[in-house]
Structures are given as C-alpha cells and as structure tokens.
Amino acid sequence: MNNSLSLTNAKHDPKGLKNPKVTTQGQQLPTKSKLYSSNGTKNYSTSTDAQQPLLQLGFRINEKLIGTGSYAKVKRCIREIDNKEFAVKIIDRDKAPSDFVTKFLPRELDIIRILDHPNIIKVQHILETKSLTLIVMEYASNGDLLDYINKTTRLQESVARRMFRELCDAIYYIHFRNICHRDLKCENLLLDNHLRIIDPPPSDNKKNMIEKKILSRTFCGSAAYAAPEILRGQE
C-alpha cells in the first residue's frame, strides 16, 4: 500500500456542508441512480456464478480476494472497455441468515444505490443471480484507514485534519438523507486520494426516530467498537 497519499494537496469543496441540497460537487441530489432499472437491480436468475453476469456487463473478475466475511467476499474486477479497476462484493444468499436476506439486505441495497458523494464509495451496478447478490463499486487503491495507520504508526496533522473534514462532509450528506451509518470505523474508511466511506449498514430512518423519539433496538455495527451497555443489552 502506498504510504505517500496526496491528501494534503487535494482540493476540497465544502458546498455540501453549506447547502444540503447539493453534493460537494455542486450536483443536485439524485432520487435514484440512472445506472439502475426501475426496481434497482438487474436480475440474472438463470446464472449460478458471479462471472457470467459481470462478463455481460463488460467486467472481468480478478480472483484475488480483497476481503472476506461469513457469507460475503470482495474481489477486484476490471472494466474491459477502459481497463479501469472496480471492486465487486459477492454475497452468497444461501449462506446468509434468512432475516438478513429478506429484511436487512434489501434495505442496504435501497440505501447504497442512491448515495452520490465524492467521499462515499459509489455503487455502479447491483446484480442478482440464482443465489448471489453482486455489488459493483468504485475501488479504493490504498486500502483502509486501519491498515494505513498500522503502517505509518501515526498521521500527520494536516492529513488527519483533511480526513476528518471529508468524513464530516460525508456524514452530513447521509444524515441529510435521513440515513444513520451506525458502523463507522477505520476499516470502513477507504483511501485513494481522499477518504471514502463504505458499507453503510441497513439503517433506521433518522427523521422518524427523532420526531417520534424512538430508540433503535436493532444491534448494528461491530462488537469490537460497541459500547459495553450495548453488548449487555441495556437501553
């Protein structure tokens, strides 16, 4: 991983903080990405693997794993028309719990398909095969923030300041859309020339929670980062 990130010289446009109706690039917030069909997902119900539907879209999978979990793995893929690198998250619905497949996964897909911000990893395509859900997204070439800190042992103040400002910008954007991330941690902050948030978990509607004074009762996030009272099941 490259330790000489060019974050200190990167330009930052804070328009998203001043005017919540635009992104930091000054673009109107989309209601749905034009990359998706009416139901938001391209279906390949006759396919049984990840390669076939991706090839039909012009992507070639690199078999080397970027990350892995209980029922999901992430690999690099190449868009053949321009050799640009992307990442593809491959979720095996047959291995996942039924409540995740029927409740949490659809909510996650609804969220990630509408996010469009320079400090959030953007989803390009969502595909479904007979048993897999494939999420093609931007690829951050410098890994995550935890790996970067472990390699460099510390951040220069100018770099940390820029990262924190970009993180606040992205959080403001998702909060304006009534989305709570609920799993912000170094492993979910990726790096290229900027800091990029990834993996917003299925979220409760922040506006409804505030107006109705409702507390979220669903555990969400990572146990290693959770408060002790959450792990004990206290309210």
Rank of each mutant, 00 (worst) to 15 (best):
Q124V: 02
D183W: 11
R161P: 03
R217A: 02
K122L: 04
A50C: 09
Q234N: 01
E85R: 02
N193D: 12
I197M: 15
T41Y: 07
G143I: 05
E80D: 10
K151N: 11
K15I: 14
R79M: 15
F86R: 12
S4P: 03
H125I: 01
A87I: 08
P106G: 09
M163F: 15
T152G: 04
A96V: 08
Q124H: 06
S158F: 01
D116A: 10
A223V: 13
K130A: 07
L54V: 02
F86N: 15
P200L: 03
M137Q: 15
C220P: 00
G58V: 09
N193I: 02
L189R: 04
A10S: 08
T8P: 04
Y36I: 08
K75Q: 12
Q124I: 03
C168W: 05
S47E: 09
I61F: 14
T133S: 09
D49Q: 06
T8E: 14
L195C: 07
N142C: 06
K15G: 11
L132S: 09
G69T: 14
I214K: 10
I126T: 03
V123E: 01
Y172G: 10
D183V: 13
T31C: 00
I90P: 10
I61H: 12
Y173T: 07
P97Q: 15
V136Y: 09
S6D: 11
K15S: 13
C220L: 00
V74E: 12
I114G: 02
Y148Q: 08
L109I: 12
D110C: 08
H175Y: 06
P228R: 04
F219C: 03
L189V: 08
L115R: 06
